[in-house]
Amino acid sequence: MEPLFLEGKEDTPKIILNSQSNQYLISGRSLPEDATSFYSPVLKWLDEFSTQTVADPNVKFEVRLEYFNTASSKLLLDIFSKLEGLSENGKKVTVQWYYSEDDEDMLEAGEEYSELVDLKFEMKTY
């Protein structure tokens, strides 16, 4: 399946979804005015991914966001819901939630997502 690469910009994050190299990453800032359009290819990609069998069932989904707006926070939840679906299809998904050591709000945001979805979250500092 074709990987998805989106270059990071000042208001949208860098995105890598690559099942060949087993790399899944969102990093940077997510402040798009129209979050639905921005994240629509990501959600589509995850839908297709859910139908694929992969050599290594371990999916480590890295989130390294500096900050995100409230519209993006809804779309992140949609992404995590899709990832939850992957677990049902035999893939073992872990969300690696990165936050800078002095950023309590980002840690808190990660902890809240982990309460909202049935996924394994690893909180990591960078």
């Binding site: 409230t70 519209a71 809804k74 939840l77 909202l116």
Partner: peptide, 13 residues
Amino acid sequence: IIVGHSLDEKGGI
């Protein structure tokens, strides 16, 4: 709100 609502036509929630 984040669980129960969807983004509206203006992209707000």
